[in-house]
């Protein structure tokens, strides 16, 4: 780690002023401290935003507003999240370990970097994300954890967050503050696919800060929802693939379907094609399989991760079949 100075933000305005001047935001530090120590990233100033407002509150209209500094553990344990958005609680609890969830913030979770091992291997591997134009050793390398959707010649890394997969499913909106004022962006539009510029991972502009996340009032498919993570050991591992699913039924037919996938792309992948294909159908395993196959028609697996297509198919069918049988 190169020498740096650490400042605790007094308030949001203080944090914003420092970010405009080039400081990096420090939330829980569970990813950034490691990146700095491994010399994947460098920073001259860290502004600690983890002690800014950390509340979860409900609006009169039924939206839930979550401050960026809320920890992953606090959000997962929140009664309203558990009751109205169980997919989000389960996804948070699928991530990392209890220790890390006590540290990690919502804002930091959204902006965490890929765990592609070639991205981390500063001395031994080429990475276009770390050093634009250098090349990508993952494409011909160990690609078990890499993308099958939306990747490019330049980068095949996946976004590692579980929480973001649930947020994508829930139509969460991310609130930002910056030198140009405040704005909000749907979570599904916040992360961008790699294309020719894999070093650009989000639509955040220089000097912008995530201030919070807003969830819409809960719909049937948000309340009847769950998250399943498939990984190489049963806990404390990143996803090989994961599925956030929700179903709203009327007279045995799908009125509302929500599906998002993790571990398959550089961003949480909202499966809108599969959702649309299910409307009006009985949620049978056959119908669910046909729907997710439509979504995966564009999948382009690498030499070693073609198994993810079948794994996503089976996981989607399992999650939604279970939800279809669950009492709302």
């Amino acid at each position: 780690m190169t020498p740096l100075c650490y400042v605790r933000a007094g308030d949001r305005a203080d944090a914003l002023a420092r970010v405009v001047n080039g400081a990096r935001c420090l939330g829980g530090g569970t990813n950034l401290v490691d990146l700095l120590r491994q010399n994947v990233e460098q920073a001259s100033e860290l502004v600690d935003v983890s002690r800014l407002d950390g509340d979860v509150r409900e609006s009169d209209g039924g939206e839930l507003f979550i401050d960026a500094a809320v920890t992953n553990a606090a959000l997962a344990a929140h009664p309203l999240v558990r009751r109205r958005y169980p997919v989000l609680a389960r996804a948070l609890l699928a991530g990392a370990s209890a220790q890390i969830r006590n540290m990690a913030t919502v804002g930091g979770n959204i902006l965490q970097r890929t765990r592609c091992m070639y991205f981390y291997d500063v001395d031994g591997a080429r990475c276009n994300k770390r050093q634009p134009g250098a090349g990508c050793d993952a494409r011909e390398g160990f690609d078990r954890y890499h993308a099958i959707l939306g990747a490019s010649d330049q980068c095949v890394a996946t976004h590692p967050s579980d929480m973001c997969v649930a947020l994508a499913m829930l139509d969460a909106v991310v609130h930002l503050s910056g030198p140009g004022g405040d704005r909000s962006v749907p979570l599904t539009d916040l992360h961008v696919l790699p294309g020719a510029t894999p070093q650009v991972e989000t639509v955040l502009q220089p000097g912008e800060l995530i201030t919070g996340v807003e969830l819409p009032p809960p719909s049937d498919a948000m309340v009847r929802s769950d998250y399943r993570k498939v990984r190489d050991r049963s806990s404390y591992a990143f996803a090989v693939v994961s599925v956030a699913g929700g179903l709203g039924l009327a007279e045995g037919r799908v009125r509302e379907a929500r599906i998002a996938l993790g571990g398959v792309a550089a961003k949480p992948w909202r499966a809108r094609r599969a959702e649309a294909a299910l409307i009006g159908l009985a949620p049978t395993p056959e119908a669910l399989l046909a729907a997710i196959r439509e979504e995966l028609a564009d999948a382009r697996p690498l030499s070693g991760n073609g198994f993810k297509i079948g794994l996503v198919e089976r996981t989607v069918v399992a999650v939604l079949t279970t939800l279809a049988g669950a009492r709302a």
Binding site: L26, T30, V33, D34, Q99
Partner: peptide, 28 residues
């Protein structure tokens, strides 16, 4: 020393955290 093993777990205000990924300054 990179948040993968839990050997460095301590209690911070009663909550378990990884001391290897916590900057000492964050504990002020």
């Amino acid at each position: 020393d990179q948040g993968a093993c839990g050997a460095c777990t301590v209690l911070l205000d009663g909550n378990r955290v990884l001391s290897c990924l916590t900057l000492a300054a964050q504990a002020e």
